[in-house]
Design a binder for these strands. Sequence first.
DNA 1: GCTTGCTATGCAACTCGTTGCATAGCAGGA
DNA 2: TCCTGCTATGCAACGAGTTGCATAGCAAGC
Lengths: 191, 191
Amino acid sequence: MSLEHAILVSLLEQPASGYELARRFDRSIGRFWTATHQQIYRVLKRMESDDWLTAEEVGQEGLPDKKIWSVTPTGRSALVAWLRAPVQPEAVRHELAVKIRGAAFDDAAGRAALVAEVERYRADHAATLAGYLAGERRDFPDPAARDARAALQHVVLRGGIAYERMVLAWLDDVLDTLRDLDPATSRKANP
Amino acid sequence: MSLEHAILVSLLEQPASGYELARRFDRSIGRFWTATHQQIYRVLKRMESDDWLTAEEVGQEGLPDKKIWSVTPTGRSALVAWLRAPVQPEAVRHELAVKIRGAAFDDAAGRAALVAEVERYRADHAATLAGYLAGERRDFPDPAARDARAALQHVVLRGGIAYERMVLAWLDDVLDTLRDLDPATSRKANP
DNA sequence: GCTTGCTATGCAACTCGTTGCATAGCAGGA
DNA sequence: TCCTGCTATGCAACGAGTTGCATAGCAAGC
């Protein structure tokens, strides 16, 4: 739907090659829009044929050539038109929530395995939160003096931080709930 | 990926026709897994041919026949196997976050339009939260006395409530940030 | 010398998800 | 009477996203 637009925003912030874009989608942009390099290369070609982007070939010593993509005025117009269109409702897909409700149809051993899995999942989110907070200290040390772009990037990052904090608190709630169902098993697993 | 498993959980909680399932995916299950009736009918057929489900044809007065689907032992085994497999990382796709970062490349008029859109979006989420809270009062009036299934359904609902509260707080942060960028315009729009 | 991993791009095949449309009878309101 | 909307299911076409694989040179470590 709007991978194109996520790419436009990223390239307006800073022109990049497909490969660099793919790495951004593993990092900052990936906080709110995921994409693989396959998707990105395919969409870049379509955007070029639609005259949304132009490429500058750059030769590199000892490395393959790369194409640095920039947004054309046409692409920028397309982005602005999309920005002013209504926001689509999000398609929620939360696998863990399905598993938690499904745990009612497994036995105590299965729920103990789920507890372990939720703990692992929680550790991942704790690491993500720590990464966000480190990025915030690094990129936005002074909340007062900054331009529109930084202010908007920062508020999106704060959204990521708020999300991760909410998830961690909820996962604690989930762990308490799961352990209350099978007190003996969880006492064994967590003496 | 796991629409099958969401369907298995829902049918184990209560057997249903494809149509009834589709409505559940607009309501309780839809809080954490969305699906259209097209997807559901297609997947139900595949699950039947995999012997995960059986159908009972039910004639109705004045209405088309319907098939009531139930989970077979094979289907239940498949669910349990999936429950015990690792949780996959979620694919995040948050269109509004892309638009907010994109707002740096629009003008004050565009950002004013985005403020209006965020306000509408906020109202939707406030309504969703109100619906969740009403459902919680209706379905889980007594947090003490209840079985595993209710406890697990409730903790998933609490996750939805925590999510909506977090979103509302973040949207207020977003609105403040957007208004700070164009004080004159926002004063005009919000006297 | 061999393996692993990084930069850099891409094809092909597949599955998943969306959109538009179709059928068909009945109920309720303008 | 006509239109809208609900129950109930489904086909067909398309678009989005995933997975596996391929190329190709260089650097670093064992």
